[in-house]
Structures are given as C-alpha cells and as structure tokens.
C-alpha cells in the first residue's frame, strides 16, 4: 500500500529542546494511525510539523509523494491535509454553519469582483456552498444547531462541527488532535464509529492523537508511541498493549 503521508527522519527543535527526534512514520489511505505518548512527548509538535505550523529542522514530510514540509499551512491544507485543534479550533464568532462554510472556503468559486457586482455565478457558488454545508451538518446529526454561534454549542457538538468543518472538502488525510477530550462516554463511542467509518468507507487516512486509550485501541489499525520526541513503538494495537517499553513510557512503571 502506497503511503498517503510519509515522515522520514523528522526532527523539530525549539532552541536546545528536541521536541521531535528523528521520527519516521507513514499513514496509508483508509488507515487509522494513532499517535500516543505521555504529555510533552512531541505529538502535537509532530502534528504541527505536518500541517505546516511548525518548521522541521531535518528530515522530510511527503504527502501523496510530494514534499510538503516547506509549504505554508494554507497551502498544505489546500493540498488535502486537514486538521482539528486540541483546544477547540472553532471560530467562536461564527455560527456552526459559517464554520463549515469557512472549511469549504477553497471550494467556493465566488470571486471578489463577481461578489461586488452580485454576479449570478458568484451568488450561485455561495448558495450552493451554504446548501452543502447544511447537508454536511445534517449528515453528522448537528444540523439542528447550524445557526447557533459556535461558542454556544456543547462540547460534543463543537467537536462534531469541527470534524464536519475539517472534512468539508473531503480531504484524503485528516489529523485529529485529541478529539475525545471532554466527551461523555457514549459520545466517545459515537466518535469512534465515525472515525472507523471515515477510514473504512471513504478511505480517508487518519492520524489521531488521543489519550483515551480505549478509543485508541478500538479504532486504530496501528499505534505509534512517542516518548521524549522519539518513536518507541509502531505496531497494531494489541501488540502495543503488550509492549514493555510502551508500558514504561506511557503508563509509567508497571
């Protein structure tokens, strides 16, 4: 299986601190790869490197065979790498619907002059995008809050809207940064099913940072464990669960 995302010997240093140390990993289309490790292991930094929010000091990041580590975040996003954020990256000033519309931004074919002139083509592009955004929200069962401000939504709804927004353009690769934080157990289960469906039915490659270990074990095809910026394991969940090095790194001394 050709890798969708491929990291080769990636290092990220902040001053004297090596946050990500020579990490190689790959994610294939339709594969759920979980990234776990204790706090400060470099998981989010690795995410930021992939999405262009952190500069890598060495190594290479390829997406669909193309080097992306010198591109800006919006260029990487436009290529089809979408992400969610750890602390809720929704636009608080916008409604759920508008959040998804921003997710569709690169797909709305309205032009500056077309909009000023209220040209039919631009108007159609805008209303088609609005219809599409509503459809996507309905699909994830958050359609009823479409016109509520993002800041007024419950934690679970916010998470769903953020996922809808990230998926709006049907990206081949999705980066989920702790999507289960603050979710009730039944919501976590639902989230797990959604992640599985996205990978299984739509063939989206998913890189998942998550602390909820049950979720990780249930949805992942592969689990990569980071500790102090280094990769200490890369194996199917069952195998990782039994790995001694992982237990020590991640769960403390067993």
């Amino acid at each position: 299986m050709a890798a969708l995302l491929e990291l080769t010997d990636v290092s990220v240093r902040f001053g004297g601190l090596t946050a990500v140390d020579n990490v190689s990993l790959s994610v294939a289309a339709g594969e759920v790869c979980a990234l776990i490790g204790p706090n400060g292991a470099g998981k989010t930094t690795l995410f930021n490197a992939v999405s262009g929010n952190a500069v890598i000091n060495s190594g290479a990041i390829r997406f669909q065979g193309e080097e992306i580590h010198r591109l800006t975040p919006h260029q990487i996003s436009a290529k089809g790498v979408r992400r969610t954020f750890q602390n809720g990256g929704l636009f608080a000033h916008l409604t759920a619907l508008e959040n998804v519309l921003v997710g569709l931004h690169t797909r709305v074919d309205s032009s500056f002059l077309g909009l000023l002139a209220s040209a039919p083509a631009s108007r159609r592009a805008e209303s088609a995008a609005t219809a599409r955004a509503r459809e996507l929200l309905d699909l994830m069962q958050v359609g009823h809050v479409a016109d509520n401000l993002a800041s007024d939504l419950s934690g679970g709804q916010q998470r769903m809207v953020e996922i809808v927004r990230a998926l709006a353009t049907e990206p081949p690769l999705l980066l989920l940064d702790e999507p289960a934080v603050g979710l009730a157990p039944h919501m976590r289960e639902q989230l797990g099913q959604i992640i599985r469906r996205l990978a299984g039915e739509r063939g989206i490659g998913i890189l998942l940072i998550e602390h909820a270990i049950e979720l990780v074990m249930n949805v992942s095809d592969r689990v990569v464990v980071l500790n102090y910026g280094k990769k200490v394991a890369d194996a199917p969940p069952a195998q990782v669960r039994a790995d001694k090095a992982v237990l020590e790194a991640y769960l403390g001394h067993a």
């Binding site: 929010n53 996003s77 805008e126």
Partner: peptide, 28 residues
C-alpha cells in the same frame, strides 16, 4: 455583499483564530 460572502467569513475566521483559518486553506 463582501461581508456576507466567503471573503467576509474569512475576515471573521482570521479574527477568531488565525491558525485555524490558515488550516482551512485561507491564505490569511
């Protein structure tokens, strides 16, 4: 017209969260 379109939404997205706006493919 401008504010009601994807342009206005992009402005508001930048106001809310610049990093997330860029992650949506918006050249901020």
């Amino acid at each position: 017209r401008l504010l009601r379109s994807r342009f206005g939404r992009a402005f508001m997205a930048i106001k809310s969260n610049e990093q997330a706006a860029a992650a949506m493919g918006i050249p901020t």
